[in-house]
Design a protein around this nucleic acid. Structure first.
Ligand SMILES: NC(=O)c1ccc[n+]([C@@H]2O[C@H](COP(=O)([O-])OP(=O)(O)OC[C@H]3O[C@@H](n4cnc5c(N)ncnc54)[C@H](O)[C@@H]3O)[C@@H](O)[C@H]2O)c1
Ligand SMILES: NC(=O)c1ccc[n+]([C@@H]2O[C@H](COP(=O)([O-])OP(=O)(O)OC[C@H]3O[C@@H](n4cnc5c(N)ncnc54)[C@H](O)[C@@H]3O)[C@@H](O)[C@H]2O)c1
Lengths: 239, 239
DNA sequence: AACCGCTTGTGAACGCAGGAACAAAGTCGC
DNA sequence: GCGACTTTGTTCCTGCGTTCACAAGCGGTT
């Protein structure tokens, strides 16, 4: 009875689950390591890496510990070794096809950005409802009509869908992407998308970012505003 | 840290600090409320608001409770009343001047986006180092040379600085913004900016978002489950 | 070969966020 | 006018994430 518990519940060697917050930071470490490798560095300490990534050294070590021991005590981490380790942990360096729906200003900026290709993300499908945009060439790929969504997803075997359409149509676009087989979605439209289980959605909300900054600003200089409604303005200070 | 900060006699019992995660959600609620007001709704329940915002109803009520009681039991929240309350809490509806440094694809998309103005964020200063871009008109504002940074910040009394330059120059741009008086910075360049105390930085890292999606995708494929979609409908996992 | 300094890896504590359950309170129907 | 229903506001609790601190391990040195 107890013996079976001790043997192995469901886990194997080192497949401990990695918190999502840690995964996000691992991606940052990987980028910093790429820069270090370009500078010809062979080893790096947790302190230096942490400074470059803007995090706490102890937290960085704990993050890396999810991958098992990958440093040498007294020396630090091998840049190339750690880079390889992180790359594999984050999903390998294989190419990941992505589709972008809605090639307005934001969508076009994303599709044209060279920084994604170096990480394995290739924008192989561009879709828009505007006939004037269809046929345009953005980042080496031609914009196709939204009616082709299903076939484009199928042909390219796209793993990630990026939604940069107006908010009103974002949910319907999302539904079509999911139905076509996309299971990872990056949403820039200011709406909360509803998806079936098994589909991951990440939302980037730039208005919220600005609003949080505005809040922190107001909180910082609490009483510099003699304007409207001063009654309830008693918030605590700092940070 | 300094708990004694709110020990002074405040008649209103609202000295509790608002967690940053809550602030971000408050901004989302505010946007949803704007849509509801446009539909002519006068009242809304926490459940409905939570569904539209993609969060848990109990969590929503807890978020709102940081502002004090602002709903009516048995009825719900007044759309206009809550909207006003949230607007005040998030920094008022006064215009917040912003400057954008680096008007490439991404910077131009931001400066030209109409959705920010409705929240009080006005892009009153656009700066770029490329002589070819200087003089361009983006979103009703003229691009000026980067040498004018200090004078533009001073003239517009800009509260927020948005950095969309290449990563190599982001830190120097940041330093100049801070020296010019900007205390809130939204950074899109893939570097960790160093700023003096009293300055807030928010970073938007799109590569990391994609990388996290790739990781979740790989993790999911460990079981290699097809697109099943069981009858367990309801709310999908947001975030 | 042993020592010493440096760095990693991990265990424990703390604080925070999220979720569920429950009591208060106000409204609607009769 | 009163009861019952609806919805809020709050409290408790659980789990996660972050930080501190320290023991363990490795390289270089004597
Ligand atoms: N541009 C920004 O800085 C910014 C900032 C925050 C949020 N956003 C959000 O990102 C989204 C896009 O912003 P934008 O500035 O690029 O807008 P945009 O109007 O420039 O682009 C939207 C594009 O989507 C296309 N489109 C419309 N309906 C479609 C459909 N049903 N199927 C496919 N394509 C369709 C349009 O033809 C257009 O090309 C919006 O939801 C916006 O709220 C943008
Ligand atoms: N476009 C994207 O989708 C995307 C995605 C992720 C990250 N980013 C990051 O956002 C930033 C901008 O991306 P982009 O695609 O708009 O690049 P871009 O090259 O199109 O634009 C950069 C702009 O900055 C200007 N610039 C260069 N040096 C400057 C300086 N010293 N002072 C002022 N302006 C200067 C350039 O003239 C150019 O107009 C980059 O750091 C990039 O890594 C962009």
């Amino acid at each position: 009875m107890f013996g079976s518990l001790w043997s192995l519940p469901v886990s194997e060697s080192r497949p401990r689950i990695i918190p999502e917050a840690t995964v996000a930071r691992l991606a940052v470490y990987l980028r910093v390591l790429a820069g270090l490798a370009g500078d010809g560095r062979s080893h790096v300490s947790s302190g230096e890496l942490a400074t470059a990534a803007g995090v706490n050294p102890a937290g960085l070590r704990k993050d890396l510990s999810y991958l098992g021991p990958c440093g040498v005590r007294g020396v630090g981490y091998s840049v190339s070794g750690l880079r390889e380790r992180l790359t594999t942990a984050l999903g390998g360096e294989r190419s990941r096809p992505c589709v972008v729906v809605g090639l307005g200003r934001l969508g076009a900026a994303l599709a044209d950005y060279a920084g994604f290709a170096s990480r394995g993300f290739e924008f192989v499908g561009l879709l828009d409802a505007d006939p004037q945009r269809v046929g345009d060439c953005v980042g080496g790929c031609t914009v196709r009509p939204i009616a082709d969504l299903e076939s484009v997803v199928a042909d390219t075997e796209a793993a990630i869908g990026v939604i940069t359409t107006p908010a009103e149509v974002a949910q319907s676009v999302c539904d079509r992407l999911v139905a076509a087989g996309v299971r990872s979605i990056l949403n820039f439209a200011p709406v909360a998308l509803t998806v079936p289980p098994g589909v991951d959605v990440r939302k980037v909300d730039l208005s919220v970012e600005l609003q949080v900054l505005a809040f922190l600003d107001q909180q910082r200089d609490g009483g510099r505003q003699p304007v409207t409604v001063p009654v309830h303005a008693g918030l605590g200070a700092q940070r």
